[in-house]
Simulated assay, not measured.
Amino acid sequence: MIRAIIIDDEIQSRITLKNELSLLKVPFEIVAEANSVLTGVEKIDLFEPEMVFLDIHLGDGSGFDLIEKVKNRNFKIIFITAYNQYALQAFKVHALDYLLKPIVFADLKHAIDKAIHLSLNIQTNRIQYLLNDLNQKSNKISFSTTEGFTIHFIKDIIRCESDSNYCKIYFSNHEHIYLSKTLKQIEDQLINYGFERIHHSHLINMNHLLKYINKDGGEVIMSDGSKIPVSKRKKSELNLMLSKLAI
């Protein structure tokens, strides 16, 4: 039984969604409903759901406002929205599932199935990056070097490559720097800004990805022309992410 909360300021939309959920083979328990950011945060903190169906447009703010106010974001989210080109593009870019109103049963079933199988950590990272992108937060990063600190726009970082206990950072101006950090340490700093670990030695900025060649071992081509291998373990995850961007 999946404990869920529906947050939507339209009562008929909540009723319709509950009826649709009752037809699924996956059992849901709707532990609470809310119609605003304020009541939504209260219900989430009180009932600690496993999944939240979240409308983007609420009377006292947005679904994104709600996410930032919640104390513990340890639940899956399926976004719900009326047609909004900007919101839809944002969801596609960040590989997040969403439902368009009026909700189609087949789309609901598909979104729930994907949400169940997507790890909470991956979805949380993607949502955080979406929030950072929407709010235009923290667009710079500083790296400690032997000479002091070097400051860069995150959008200018193309990729990071592991070299033993060092890491090489490549930038869009064709410069690069060496850092005495592991790739995992760099990944922890950049994971919420559209970076994906596609190989144990490579972290890439998805905004600089130009092409994915899904044959042989699999590789990606970046905006600087570099070719980066994709590990077998990461191929299915990358395929899923890119399929959401396909037209």
Rank of each mutant, 00 (worst) to 15 (best):
F171K: 02
M222Y: 03
H200A: 10
D188L: 04
F53G: 02
A111H: 05
A95H: 02
D97M: 06
V31G: 06
T16E: 08
E147I: 15
P49R: 02
S180G: 05
M206I: 14
K211A: 13
E175N: 11
I2K: 01
D65S: 12
L96A: 05
D65T: 11
H174R: 15
C167T: 09
L130H: 01
L240N: 12
D133K: 09
S164D: 05
V104I: 11
A87F: 15
I127E: 00
Q189L: 13
T39W: 08
M241N: 15
S243G: 07
L96P: 00
T81A: 10
N121E: 15
E161G: 05
S36M: 08
L179I: 01
E42M: 15
S144W: 01
F47D: 04
I228G: 00
N192G: 02
K184G: 06
I213Q: 08
L88R: 11
S119A: 03
E29M: 09
I122W: 08
F79N: 05
I228M: 01
G61W: 09
S144K: 09
S22K: 12
F47Q: 05
I228A: 02
D8W: 00
D55V: 03
S144V: 08
R3M: 14
D55M: 01
I122H: 08
S180R: 03
Q189T: 12
V26R: 11
L108P: 09
N239V: 06
I30Y: 09
N239A: 01
I67K: 07
H110P: 14
V230C: 00
S162P: 00
L38A: 07
T182D: 00
L99V: 13
H208K: 10
H202R: 08
E10R: 00
V230Y: 00
L99G: 12
F105T: 06
N121C: 14
Y212D: 02
I7P: 01
A111R: 00
C160A: 03
S142I: 01
F53P: 02
I2T: 09
E33G: 02
A34E: 00
K69L: 15
I213C: 15
L242S: 12
I112F: 06
R73I: 04
D60Q: 05
H94P: 04
L120D: 11
I56E: 09
F75C: 08
